[in-house]
Design a protein around this nucleic acid. Structure first.
Lengths: 198, 198
DNA sequence: TTCTGACAAAGTGGGCGCAAAATGTCAGAA
DNA sequence: TTCTGACATTTTGCGCCCACTTTGTCAGAA
């Protein structure tokens, strides 16, 4: 299936070519021929490595999630940083290079749509993995008990972070929002000695 | 324009009828005749009160925002509650009865789309008003300075709350998310005497 | 005034046909 | 093996037409 798949060099070339083509023309308007040309090989050669266009697209999304998860894992595991720094780095890594693509490509919206309908299962597993990652990190932090179990907190934090996509402003605005949110959540999960029991 | 408009009884009837029709059939598939029938009057009579279907829709959205703003204002102004309770109530009121509609109607998604394209200006002003409302509330709370100016905090909080729409689960799940988020943000803006200056 | 039936104009949606593009799969070359 | 040119088949986009619906606005009734 998808998930834990190692990828040959040729496949990697194809994915890079496909990404380029998708970014330039969107998913629907990109043909296998376009991808083949970008990859410097003939169209039938693609079929030696992938079943069809959807298969390529799914592998691409898979790669994005793998990248994002590696990035988040590294961000949260980096020693010697405050929780706020860790969270901010995790937010920054959370989407891999996807948001750059969405903000940059004139077809960002169409690509998101295609992803939603063609890779719903991958995205769902990916989000679940992110929640698991963040949950484990929260567990190492002895967060106060009254904000709920770490898993729920992780879920809420990641869900909230999705809202930042809405305003559709600039990429820089998006990143600023992530940093600010990291600061707020870092305070929320901080364990300040005194209990606020009025 | 829109904004501060008082509404006649007939207009109110029409809006109610339109809401019913839109919820049942979506925006595009609803004709002026449908609305007229729901409202118990002839189609031409509608044109005495509204310019066209878009005008009706915009008034409806206007009403939604007015309702939401009143609700949020009341939630935040209610005396004798903790910041968490105030925030939770404000979140609950934030969308008026819109989310019920979206979750209930089989055409919720289409209505949101229609709203995005037909009432972008109203929504933008509405969101700005919500931010202003929350900003004023934060100003009364002497929140810690290092989480940024109240206006930025308000903006981030409301943006984050939008993320809760994403998972598209149940209405109850959505509300649970709001309550959890209120708890987290309440902690974030709480001013606990000791400064965390390590 | 407040509304309605009737009317002309505009818009919508479906079916059909056709040319161009894209797909997936060969047999056979490199 | 690893790939390509060529092929049959499917899909896509476009224009066109036609029936039907919807719209917005009358003149005139309630």
């Amino acid at each position: 299936m998808d998930g834990q798949n190692s990828i040959t060099d040729k496949q990697s070339d194809i994915l890079a070519a496909a990404l380029q083509a998708f970014a330039a023309q969107g998913y629907r308007r990109t043909s296998m021929d376009d991808i083949a040309r970008h990859a410097g090989m003939s169209r039938p050669a693609l079929y030696l490595h992938y079943r069809n266009k959807e298969d390529i697209f799914r592998s691409l999304v898979d790669q994005f999630f793998a990248q994002a998860l590696r990035g988040m894992g590294a961000a949260l595991a980096t020693p010697g940083q405050s929780p706020e720094q860790a969270l901010a780095a995790a937010f920054a890594a959370k989407d891999g290079t996807l948001m750059e693509l969405v903000f940059t490509s004139p077809h960002g919206a169409e690509l998101l749509e295609a992803g939603a309908s063609l890779t719903a299962d991958i995205m769902q597993r990916g989000e679940a993995a992110k929640i698991a990652l963040l949950t484990r990190w929260l567990q190492t932090l002895d967060i106060p008990a009254d904000i709920g179990p770490p898993e729920a907190v992780a879920r809420t934090i990641l869900t909230a972070a999705m809202g930042l996509k809405y305003p559709g402003q600039t990429l820089e605005g998006y990143r600023q929002g992530q940093r600010h949110l990291a600061r707020l959540f870092a305070r929320a999960i901080a364990n300040h000695g005194v209990e606020p029991t009025a």
